Computed example of a mutant assay.
Amino acid sequence: MSEKKYTYEIDAVTFQLQEPYDFAWLTKLGVVFKVFDQQDSGNLSFGVEKEGQKFFVKFAGAKPLTFDGNPLDAISRLIEAIPLYNELKSKSLINLVSHFEVGTGYAAVFEWFAGECLHSHWLFAGEAKLSHPESPFYRYKHLSVEQRLASLDVIFSFHELVELQGYVAVDFYDGSILYDFANDETRICDIDFYRLKPTVNDLGENFWGSSRFKSPEEFILDAPIDEVTNVFNMGATAFVLLGGASDRSFAKWEASKAQYDVASRAVSLEREERFQSVAAFKLAWDETGSI
C-alpha cells in the first residue's frame, strides 16, 4: 500500500487517498456533507444534499487509504451489484436512484436514509463499539427487547424475500444494518455480494463475510452457499442483536427461551440440523410470538 497521501477538502468533508482523483463530478450532485472513506472494499461514499434532498453516493474507482486492491475490481463489483438493488427492491432496502460511469470510475446514487450503521468501525473500533455510549451498536443494544425484535423482523422478512427471488445473502453482517433511532426504523444496505442460486464458496476460508456471522460452509472451498447457509446467518444475527454474539449461551440471551431455541437450531454446525429455508426459520420464529 502506498505511503503517499493526497488530501481532499470538498465542502464540509476532508479525506485522503493513495492516488489523486478528480471529483469535479461529485460537486455537480450537490453539497457534500459526509464522507465514508474507511472501507476496505475500495468504495468511497458520500452524503450529498441538493435542493433540500439528501442522497448517498457510492463510488468505485479511487484508492482509499484502507484499500489494498485494484480499483478496477471495485468498479466491476459495484457495476455487478446494481441489478441486485432492482431485483431485491423492498421498503427494507436502501433505494437506488441512479447509477452511471464517471471518469474512470462508477457511481451509484441512493436515497439518503437517516439511520446509523451498527458496525461503525471508522468511529467506534474494537471495544468502543460495545461500550462507548455514542456507539450506534451500544445504543441499539440498549433499546428494549421489543424494539430489537421488531428490527429483527425487518431483517428476517427481507431475507425471506431474498430467498423467494432465488438469491442468497453473502457478506451480510451488522455493517449491513442501518437503524434510525428517532423513528425506530431498520433498513438494509450494502447487498453488493448477494448472489443468484446456485452458488458455492469460491474463496475458501476467506469467503466474504464476518466470522461472527459466517456458517461453517463459508470457510470451506466449494461448499454450497444457499438458503441453509442464510438460516445460519439469520440465527447468528439474532445472537448478535439479542445475545452475546459469538457467546451463544442462554445466559447472554435477552429474549424468550422459545426464541433462543429457534436461534440455536439455526446456528447448528451441521447443515441438516438447521431449518432448511429462511421461510421455515421465520415461521418457527414467528410462532414464538416474537413481536
Score class of each variant (00 low, 15 high):
residue 174 D to C: 12
residue 106 Y to G: 03
residue 142 H to R: 15
residue 127 E to F: 02
residue 132 H to T: 10
residue 97 V to R: 08
residue 149 L to Q: 05
residue 146 E to F: 02
residue 165 Q to Y: 04
residue 150 A to I: 06
residue 176 S to F: 00
residue 173 Y to C: 12
residue 103 G to A: 09
residue 114 A to K: 13
residue 120 S to Y: 11
residue 153 D to G: 01
residue 144 S to M: 12
residue 165 Q to E: 15
residue 102 V to M: 04
residue 136 P to M: 09
residue 185 E to W: 03
residue 135 S to Q: 13
residue 155 I to H: 03
residue 129 K to W: 01
residue 171 D to N: 15
residue 148 R to Q: 09
residue 168 V to H: 03
residue 102 V to S: 08
residue 154 V to S: 01
residue 167 Y to C: 13
residue 120 S to I: 00
residue 142 H to C: 10
residue 173 Y to M: 00
residue 123 L to K: 12
residue 143 L to G: 03
residue 107 A to T: 04
residue 139 R to H: 12
residue 165 Q to L: 06
residue 105 G to I: 08
residue 114 A to C: 04
residue 119 H to F: 11
residue 143 L to Q: 14
residue 118 L to H: 06
residue 181 F to I: 03
residue 135 S to G: 10
residue 108 A to W: 07
residue 133 P to Q: 07
residue 100 F to R: 11
residue 124 F to I: 03
residue 127 E to D: 15
residue 110 F to L: 11
residue 180 D to H: 11
residue 129 K to E: 15
residue 125 A to C: 08
residue 116 E to W: 02
residue 121 H to V: 12
residue 141 K to D: 01
residue 132 H to E: 09
residue 164 L to V: 04
residue 140 Y to I: 05
residue 124 F to V: 04
residue 108 A to R: 09
residue 169 A to T: 06
residue 156 F to L: 14
residue 162 V to G: 01
residue 153 D to T: 08
residue 117 C to M: 12
residue 104 T to G: 06
residue 167 Y to A: 09
residue 185 E to C: 11
residue 114 A to Q: 14
residue 163 E to R: 00
residue 124 F to R: 06
residue 129 K to P: 06
residue 113 F to P: 05
residue 156 F to K: 00
residue 156 F to R: 01
residue 177 I to W: 05
residue 124 F to Q: 02
residue 132 H to V: 11
residue 176 S to K: 01
residue 116 E to S: 07
residue 105 G to W: 04
residue 130 L to G: 03
residue 99 H to L: 00
residue 145 V to Q: 06
residue 171 D to K: 06
residue 169 A to L: 09
residue 160 E to Q: 14
residue 175 G to S: 13
residue 114 A to N: 15
residue 153 D to Q: 14
residue 131 S to C: 09
residue 122 W to N: 12
residue 132 H to C: 07
residue 113 F to L: 08
residue 117 C to T: 13
residue 160 E to A: 10
residue 110 F to G: 07
residue 152 L to N: 04
residue 125 A to T: 11
residue 149 L to K: 06
residue 146 E to I: 05
residue 160 E to M: 05
residue 183 N to Q: 14
residue 125 A to D: 14
residue 126 G to P: 11
residue 176 S to R: 01
residue 182 A to P: 02
residue 142 H to G: 08
residue 148 R to F: 06
residue 122 W to E: 15
residue 169 A to R: 01
